[in-house]
Simulated scan of single mutants.
Amino acid sequence: MTTDVGLAVGRGTGPELAVVFERVVDRLGELHGVEPAITRSPQVYHSYFSLRAEADGVEDMRRLTEDDAEHYERFCRELARRGATAVFRTAINAQSLYLVRERLRAVKIDVISAPGSSPDAALLLVRDQAQGFYTGENQHTPGVLTRTMRFSQAITDDVIAHALARGRRQWPDGGADRIVMAYKHHLLDGALDGWVHAAAERHGVRIELSQPDTVNRNLIQHGLPRRTVIVAGNEWGDIMHVVLLDRYGVDKQENRCTENVYLHPDLAGLVEYQTVHGSADDLTGRDTVNPVATVRAAAAIVERHCGGTGAVESTERALAAVTARGVRTPDLGGEHSTTAVVDALLDELAQRHAGQPVTLEASS
């Protein structure tokens, strides 16, 4: 039985990474006995730099931004209507993306744990992408831009409920020990305090609502916490994500993929996977963009959404072997092209699956 998987492509290095995604999904499907069927969006969406180059002034930029947002929202809705549960998206212009995230009530999920640490010593970061400064509307008057944003009790409830559910999935033997919300709530007239208190009572849990700087201080002082969920306003989460990855020695952000879950009921939990890195417009067409995050997203989708049990583990082992042989893109200190890295990875996967020793090294 085939499984529908969406693919949305942005400018910059998006087309190159889309090819990587398709190749890896196809190979993993073959090796793990599943049949992913990729549906690619017919529109190639703007990066910020392509938008700036094409737009003729502010109003034209607003029009193109809205066009991309409307098209991508329709694409996601159609995927969900057909029963798809996953879409991979390369980087696109943030303003278009956040219009979609606001309308479809998105949260971003990251698990941060130090290499080799106990599963209990982990932080589950749930970033609220549906409200706050990253959402909202712009109004232009001569020399002034006014940005209006909204906070909603209904959206806050949805975000908290999903965070608690993800905590139970992360630690199925009891869930999270601690739930912290990092928002600049002192600016909201006490409204967020009341909403969080009501949600905590309804779910029968304790939720600590803290200022972001207080959360930072505690992370610095006490280190990686045990079984902690941090629900964060995206203003804090976006800045702190790369800091947390670095502080706890997790990985380079260029190698990471992450997932966004749409909580709007029309989308039934459609999960969007993305690379943490951006569109890398300066590398367009050079065949040197790091493919690791895209490879990991492909493996996660094949295993979690297509039934390819073991795809993530086999891909991680193959990536480690290829990297150990020095097959890397320039950003990781290597001299190999994107294509060469992916070729080596796919060969490694195939030979490991066949139980054969791997001796070949891809050329640059």
Results as ranks from 00 to 15, higher is better:
residue 119 P to W: 04
residue 149 M to P: 00
residue 280 A to R: 05
residue 118 S to A: 04
residue 120 D to I: 02
residue 321 A to Y: 11
residue 235 E to H: 06
residue 44 V to C: 12
residue 149 M to F: 11
residue 303 E to N: 08
residue 319 L to T: 09
residue 129 Q to F: 14
residue 156 T to A: 14
residue 134 Y to F: 15
residue 186 H to E: 11
residue 267 L to C: 09
residue 51 L to W: 08
residue 180 V to T: 07
residue 221 Q to C: 06
residue 151 F to S: 09
residue 316 E to S: 07
residue 319 L to N: 04
residue 357 P to M: 02
residue 328 R to E: 08
residue 38 I to N: 09
residue 262 Y to A: 06
residue 32 H to N: 02
residue 315 T to W: 06
residue 1 M to D: 12
residue 213 D to L: 05
residue 175 G to H: 08
residue 282 D to P: 06
residue 109 I to R: 04
residue 52 R to G: 12
residue 1 M to L: 10
residue 243 V to D: 11
residue 251 D to P: 00
residue 137 E to C: 00
residue 87 V to Q: 09
residue 271 V to W: 03
residue 13 T to G: 04
residue 9 V to E: 05
residue 313 E to V: 14
residue 236 W to V: 01
residue 21 F to S: 10
residue 115 P to Q: 10
residue 222 H to P: 07
residue 58 V to N: 05
residue 191 A to P: 00
residue 211 Q to W: 09
residue 124 L to E: 04
residue 100 V to F: 09
residue 144 V to N: 09
residue 232 A to M: 02
residue 106 A to M: 15
residue 247 R to N: 04
residue 327 V to D: 07
residue 292 V to N: 01
residue 340 A to M: 03
residue 186 H to W: 02
residue 30 E to N: 07
residue 121 A to K: 10
residue 125 L to C: 04
residue 168 R to Y: 06
residue 229 V to H: 03
residue 316 E to D: 15
